[in-house]
Structures are given as structure tokens and as C-alpha cells.
Computed example of a mutant assay.
Amino acid sequence: MIKKNQILNRNNQKPIVFDTFFNKTEKQKPLVVFCHGYKGFKDWGCWNLMAEAFMNANLFFVKFNFSHNGGTIENPIDFPDLNAFAENNYTKELDDLDAILNYFLANDYEYKNEININNIVVIGHSRGGGIAIIKSAEDARIKKLITFASVSDFSKRTSTIGDLEEWKKLGVKYVLNGRTKQQMPHNYQFYKDFKANEERLNIEKSEKSLQIKHLIIHAKNDKSIKYNEAEMLHNWSKHSELFPIENSDHVFSTKHPWLNSTMPKELKQVVDKSINFINN
């Protein structure tokens, strides 16, 4: 059963658009929640094919758009709402992931009989990997963690983009989206929120405190986030496994839009390894 573009409404907060992929069997299965990365969205590239693979492995797979990723309810693909994008930050994304978990683990969820509430897995790609690591360190409901090409440090990515004084003065800075050619705005609130929550947003600290298994998947030739960041995560963790992908890139040889009916072999490697990790 595939249910696309469902809406999670919240009081005084932006709604979250999400998809579910699962086989309706009345048998409880692991809940797997996927967090997209920076300038990403739930329908990017091969993520739908990936979701179908998890479903076919009899897992309950959920992917969602972070509420301020720049998508809308009407158009959850790409970035029609740059005002929302400008107001995004790490703590909003952590709140969004918490809201998704709360929704699916609630007693009144429509398909609660399909979910094993004691077998919760979070997957994060790129920046979403950092969010997944921090949330997994905070939330005892999460039993396994998988990261795809994850960042290892939010600090350097927050404070070194452009000139801080100019950012503060202007209130906004822009980053070019190479694919859509949009100038993506970041309001200064992003930096202020990071500084106000800097201890919580320390990925190294979170990784070192993890008490659950962590599968770290990273392409050795990733030019966006270097492989040594995966090695750092692995070195910080007591319970991690590092799985390198040869001859690939930050998105495991995919692109957007993806017009083929099958995943590239590199992403299939990632998905097969993830499913095996969840089931064992």
C-alpha cells in the first residue's frame, strides 16, 4: 500500500507532507523513517524506488518533507516557498522528526497494527543524517540508526557560509541551487538558533552517547561530504558499522529527476545493506 502526500497538521506550526509505503498484512513490522537532506525533498530522485524496496522487504517505510524545506502541500516537489526555506533551522527539523514519530506511534493511528512500536529505525541522508543522529541520541524509542552520506559537524557548516557580520547586517544570505538555479535564502535566525542550541546540535557529542547500533553508509568518492566525515562518526561510536560504497557520489549515482524504473546499482547496494541491517 502506497499513500502519497498525506498531511500532518499541527497547532500553530506548518504542516508536514508525508508518504507511507507498506504491505497491509495485519502483522507488525519495523517502522523506518527517512529524513531527506539539505535542498532535498521526499520525492527527490530515486527516493520513491527506494521506498518501494523497503516496502517489498515488508518494512513500514515513511518519508516526509521537513516543514520548512521550501515545498508546499500543493507542490511538495522542489522549492515554491522560499520564505519557508529561509526560516528553516536544525531545531525545526528535530521537532518535525519528533512529530512524525509521535504520529505513527500514537494509539489512534489508523494502521497501528502494522507497526512494531519496539522496532523503530531512523534513516537520514546528508544533513538529514545529522538530524537523525541527534534525535536518535535523544529519543529512546529509536532502536537502530542508519545514515547515508551524513554530515559530522553542523558548526562549520553554519558559521562559515559567507560573512557573519554581513549576514547579521542584511538579515539574509543566499546559496545558489545548481539544479533549479534558485537563490535559496537563509535568514539570520538560522545562525542565532544554532548558537542558542549549540550544545544540543553537537553531532560528535550525540554520536558518542549513542547506545544503539548505527550503520554508516558513505561513498568513498563523495565530493559534497568527504568520506573522512563517515570515518569520524565511526570512530566516535561504540556501536557503529562503516559501509563504504566504491566509485559513487553523494547521492549514490542517482539524480533528479530519475527517469529509469530501477535504482542504480550503487543505491541498490545501500538499500540492500540497510534492509539486512534492520532485519538482523
Rank of each mutant, 00 (worst) to 15 (best):
F85I: 06
M50R: 03
K268N: 13
G45Y: 00
V251E: 08
E241C: 04
R179A: 09
K24H: 13
A137N: 10
S253A: 11
L210F: 06
H218I: 04
F104N: 01
H239M: 14
L105R: 03
N228A: 06
H250N: 02
E199I: 07
W236K: 05
D78Y: 14
N69H: 12
K192D: 07
K195C: 14
Y111L: 10
L8V: 08
A137H: 00
S150K: 02
K39G: 00
F252G: 01
E229N: 05
E229H: 09
K223L: 14
V33G: 00
V172L: 09
M232P: 01
F54I: 09
K27C: 13
K192M: 11
N23Y: 07
F60G: 02
I278L: 12
N102M: 11
M263K: 00
N116K: 04
K24V: 12
L164F: 14
R200K: 12
Q183E: 14
K226P: 07
K4M: 13
V151L: 12
E110M: 03
I123G: 01
F154P: 06
V172R: 12
L242D: 07
N235G: 12
K255L: 08
N102Q: 15
L170F: 05
K3G: 07
F21H: 04
I161Y: 15
N260C: 08
N5Q: 12
N48T: 15
N260V: 11
A137K: 00
N276H: 10
I275T: 09
E138P: 01
F34N: 04
T91G: 01
I203D: 04
I203K: 06
F277T: 03
A137W: 01
N280S: 13
K220L: 06
K226G: 07
N69G: 03
K226L: 09
N89L: 06
V32S: 01
K226I: 11
N88F: 05
K92P: 02
A51C: 07
E138W: 02
P76C: 10
T91Y: 08
L8R: 04
A140D: 14
M232G: 02
N119Y: 10
K168D: 09
M184Q: 05
